[in-house]
Amino acid sequence: MLFKWLDKKTEQASRKSARITSRRSFVATLGTAVIGGSALPLLPVWRSNAHASNQSDMLPQEVSPGDDPGDPNSCEYWRYCAIDGYLCSCCGGTKTSCPPGTQMSPITWIGTCRNPADGKDYIISYNDCCGKSACGRCQCIRNENDTPAYLPANSNNINWCSGGPADVVYNCSTAIVLGVN
């Protein structure tokens, strides 16, 4: 009884499909699926996890310093007090993010700058952006509290891009607030 019903339904379905579709249409659909499937990864989607290792956990997160006076495109901006390099905010990025086509070095040097808005010392992480040749705009050399190279943890004369995911080529520097000292 059940099998008879199944047979009937299958026969009806295949006859119907034979009537309304051509064999070429199957080939056309298959072709679309194959080509479309292979083209999908080429679409401009966010692929931050495409690296061998996921770096986002290791990169510093900006903590809001409250009032944040000044111009991020100027060397005089308070959080650039110990910077030595090109400002990412002049190079297609921002004070806390890298320009397109570069990668942030997870290894960096960290110092403090006084925020004129509240007179407090904030901890600043100067992460370099790497992988494209030097930006060349807004060069700032302030070096306050910078230590000599034999105290490398606090030295800004080191190329912090070296050995990172985008390796040696230095493009520009960010200044990310980590907290209050």
Binding site: D57, M58, P106, I107, G111, A153, N154, G163, N181
Partner: peptide, 22 residues
């Protein structure tokens, strides 16, 4: 915590995972 940020975090990173490549 502040001393960690100022003296260690630059290389050992915020969550202490360090950097194998270096």
């Amino acid at each position: 915590k502040a001393n960690y940020m100022l003296n260690c975090q630059g290389c050992h990173t915020a969550d202490g995972s360090g950097h194998q490549g270096r």
